[in-house]
C-alpha cells in the first residue's frame, strides 16, 4: 500500500474534463446517433473475435442501471472459472451496441490471472446494451448482456 489512491486524481480530472467538454459532448452525441453501432454490428464485432455459438451463463456484467454520466460508467465483468491449466477463460470481449463503434475492450487471460474478473470504465453515447462474450480454453463460448440507461451521453468528451 505504498501507492497513492489512484481514483482520487482520476475522478477529479475526469470531472474537470466532463465539465469543460460538456457542449462538445452534446454535439458528439447528436453526431453519434447518425453513425451509431447497432445490435447487429455489435454481434458481428463479437462474432469476429469469438468463434462458436455462445450459450447463456457463466458471464456476469455488473453496471449501474442508470448512468447519469455516460463519460465514465463503471462496469465489472466476471466469468465463472477455476482458472487452472485444465480449465480457464481464454478471452473476454466486451461490446456496446449503441456507441459509434461497437467495440469496448478485448481481454485475454492465462491461468495465472487466478480469477477472470475485470473492472473498467466505459463511455456510453446513449442508453444501450453492454454485451460480454467469454471464450473458454475448451472452445466453448458464453454470453451475457445488460442494459444501461444513460442520462447524459459520453462520446464527444
Amino acid at each position: 500500500m505504498n501507492h497513492r489512491n489512484p481514483s482520487t486524481l482520476g475522478r477529479r480530472a475526469a470531472l474537470a474534463r466532463a465539465g469543460g467538454y460538456g457542449l462538445a459532448a452534446i454535439a458528439g452525441v447528436l453526431a453519434a446517433r447518425d453513425a451509431a453501432a447497432t445490435p447487429d454490428s455489435a454481434r458481428d464485432w463479437l462474432a469476429a473475435l469469438a468463434k462458436g455459438t455462445p450459450a447463456e451463463g457463466k458471464v456476469s456484467i455488473k453496471a449501474p442501471e442508470i448512468a447519469e454520466n455516460g463519460n465514465a460508467v463503471p462496469v465489472t465483468v466476471g466469468v465463472e472459472s477455476e482458472m487452472t491449466d485444465k480449465s480457464y477463460v481464454k478471452a473476454l470481449h466486451i461490446a456496446a451496441d449503441g456507441n459509434p463503434n461497437p467495440g469496448v475492450a478485448s481481454y485475454s487471460f492465462t491461468p495465472l490471472a487466478g480469477k477472470a474478473e475485470i473492472q473498467l470504465r466505459v463511455r456510453l453515447a446513449q442508453t444501450q446494451k453492454l454485451v460480454a462474450v467469454a471464450e473458454m480454453n475448451d472452445g466453448s463460448v458464453f454470453i451475457a448482456s445488460r442494459e444501461v440507461k444513460v442520462t447524459i451521453g459520453g462520446c464527444g468528451g
Binding site: N71, P74, Y107, T110, P111, G114, E117, Q119, V122, G154
Partner: peptide, 27 residues
C-alpha cells in the same frame, strides 16, 4: 506479466473512458 509470465492483456477501444481505470486479478 508476473515474473515475465503473461497474466492478461487487453486491447482497448475508444469506448474506454478518459484516464482509463482497469482492474484485474493475479494469482
Amino acid at each position: 506479466t508476473f515474473n515475465g509470465k503473461p497474466v492478461m492483456n487487453a486491447k482497448l477501444e475508444p469506448a474506454i473512458s478518459a484516464n482509463p481505470y482497469l482492474s484485474f486479478f493475479v494469482r
